[in-house]
């Protein structure tokens, strides 16, 4: 049941990413918003918080992949996380901005991204 094993491995990685995502300040703050601060628009909040959760889980998958395998290209990250390359690029841009990730050379016609320390 080789197929089953790799499916389980993928799910395990994704779940690990989700656990890391729920440890981030950003997601934890968003979960607790209704309790503190001025009035929040419920509709807006629901839409935004779902997106933030999905983004954080996807980003932790990207970071996890880089930490495990070393500097990766967008193509490699897309294959590993099953996110399309456009989505991966969007996350890379955001992670770059906060300093989590940076360029580390070129490979196969694209840039390599590493976890900054």
């Amino acid at each position: 049941m080789i197929g089953g094993l790799s499916e389980k491995k993928k799910l395990a990685k994704k779940t690990d990413a989700a656990i890391e995502a729920f440890k981030t300040e950003r997601l934890r703050w968003v979960l607790g918003i209704s309790q503190v601060g001025p009035k929040v628009d419920e509709q807006k909040y629901k839409a935004v918080s779902s997106k933030i959760m999905k983004d954080e889980i996807d980003r932790q998958m990207i970071i996890g992949e880089i930490k495990e395998k070393g500097p990766r290209t967008i193509k490699e990250l897309s294959e590993a996380t099953k996110l399309n390359t456009k989505e991966v690029l969007r996350h890379i841009i955001a992670l770059r901005k906060i300093g989590t990730i940076s360029e580390a050379g070129e490979k196969d016609g694209g840039y390599l991204y590493k976890a900054s320390e």
Binding site: L11, T15, S50, M53
Partner: peptide, 18 residues
């Protein structure tokens, strides 16, 4: 608080495939 988290967790589990 738990109730609010519960909704998020359901969504997360959907996203993961559990």
């Amino acid at each position: 608080m738990m109730e609010r988290r519960f909704a998020f967790l359901k969504e997360a589990m959907n996203q993961l495939g559990i």
